[in-house]
Each structure stands twice: as C-alpha cells, then as structure tokens.
C-alpha cells in the first residue's frame, strides 16, 4: 500500500479516483431511476389480468435476472450499435460511424438489470397491501385515481423501500462492469492505475473504500426515507 500514489492533482491518482467515483455515482443514480420506472411498469404488467402482458413481464425478469450482467452490456453496446448503424446506413445512406453514447448505453444496461429486480420488489409490495383497505377505500367512494394515490402508493412505498434499498446496492456495484465499454468509473480507473504503476493493491483498496463510502452515504439516505415512509406506523 503506497499512499503517496494517491495525492491530489497531476502528481497523484487521488483526483482521478474521486472523479471515477463521481462517474460511478452518476451512472448508478441514472440507472437506478430508470430501473424504478421499468420496474413499476413491469410490476403492473405482472399484476395485470391480461395473460400476454404477464408472460412478457415474466420473460423479461427471467431472462435479465438469469444471465450475467456483463452479457447484457455486451449485447446492448455492440449489438445495439450494429443495429443503429444498419438503420443509419439503410435509411439515410449515412455510412460513417454511428455509436451509442457510452454513458446512455451503460445507463440502459444497468437500468434494465435493476428494473428486473425492482419489478419483483414492487410486485411484492403491491401484493402486501391488505385487500381490505382497497375495499374500504372503494366503500367510502374513493375513485380509482385517488385510491391509487392515497392508499396504494404510500403503502407500496413503505413495503418496497427495504427491497429497493437492496436494488440500489446492487446497482451501485454493477456499475463496475461497464468499464468494458470504456466508461471511466471507479473500477476502470483502478485497473488503469494498477497497470500503470504496478501497485494493484493500493488501487483496489482505494476502490474498496470508495464503494464503501458511496454505500454508506446512500444507506443513510435510505434509512431516512424508510423512517419517513413508516411515520405513524406502529412497529414491534
């Protein structure tokens, strides 16, 4: 462990590693937001009365959760780029290189994966809302939109938060895989530092600490959110 390698500025790798951490955070936040949107959509499909929608959602969660994330990244990045180029060339005769921007690609890949896990969490949370409450709301004459807003969403949020906290942890760590498409986040920066200085330890321990730091900060955020969602609920 050689701490002198980690100084700030041009003489050390400290600033590079912190920039990497910021990139990790940016990708993780965007992917997570996307994952929640996707997850809510597919959870609704899974709870739908229409069988084809349920099958589609089942297919999505089974496939995405069943294959390693690295494969998803490869397929979206290289496969998606090829499709885009074919379209560009076929329709517009645009023969030059067209590429998916790497940040967006990374976000879509990790978001798709996070979405699959979020689907299950949100579905479980919806099912956990006691039916009687919906019935009671209906009985007092609440309309569908109001029932959704006042009864379903606040409780789903409460039940889903611990699970969504787990999904966030997964998302944060999964971002380490998108270094393969060239996005310079913590892991890529650590690998470059290790290869350039021949001091892999210093860099992987730094990466370890940075991930721990990011997780600690966000964990605190989730605890506060849970506290907020659980206000007024009696707990054992």
């Amino acid at each position: 462990m050689d701490l002198s390698l980690l100084t700030w500025g041009d003489g050390g790798w400290g600033d590079e590693m912190v920039l990497g951490a910021l990139m990790t955070l940016a990708v993780a936040v965007c992917s997570y937001a996307l994952g929640i949107v996707i997850g809510s959509g597919f959870a609704a499909m899974k709870l739908s009365h229409l069988a084809p929608l349920r099958w589609l959602a089942d297919l999505y969660t089974t496939v995405i959760r069943g294959i390693p994330e690295l494969l998803i990244i490869y397929l979206v990045f290289f496969g998606g780029g090829a499709v885009l180029r074919t379209v560009a060339k076929g329709l517009f005769g645009y023969g030059d290189y067209v590429d998916l921007p790497i940040f967006v690609t990374g976000m879509v890949c990790i978001g798709l994966s996070a979405g699959a896990y979020a689907t299950e969490v949100i579905r479980g949370a919806v099912l956990a809302v006691p039916r009687g409450q919906i019935e009671a709301a209906r009985a007092v004459g609440m309309r569908k939109g109001l029932r959704f807003r006042r009864i379903l969403v606040p409780q789903v949020a409460r039940y889903a938060l611990p699970g969504l906290g787990n999904v966030w942890q997964l998302t944060l760590k999964e971002t380490s895989l998108i270094s393969v498409i060239g996005l310079v986040e913590i892991m890529r920066q650590a690998a470059v530092g290790a290869g350039s200085t021949k001091e892999p330890f210093t860099f992987y321990i730094t990466a370890f600490v940075l991930y721990l730091g990011l997780a600690s900060i966000s964990n605190r955020g989730f605890l506060r959110a849970e506290g907020w969602a659980n206000r007024g609920v009696r707990s054992a």
Partner: peptide, 19 residues
C-alpha cells in the same frame, strides 16, 4: 420517427473518417 432517428444518428456520429 425517421426524422428523429436521423437527428439521433447525426448526434451520435463519432465520425471516424476512415474513407
């Protein structure tokens, strides 16, 4: 949709002018 795709394609063009 085509116009959109065209704009997108141009926006993403990394233009490695190999020709």
């Amino acid at each position: 949709l085509l116009t959109l795709a065209a704009i997108a394609a141009m926006a993403f063009a990394g233009a490695a002018q190999a020709a």
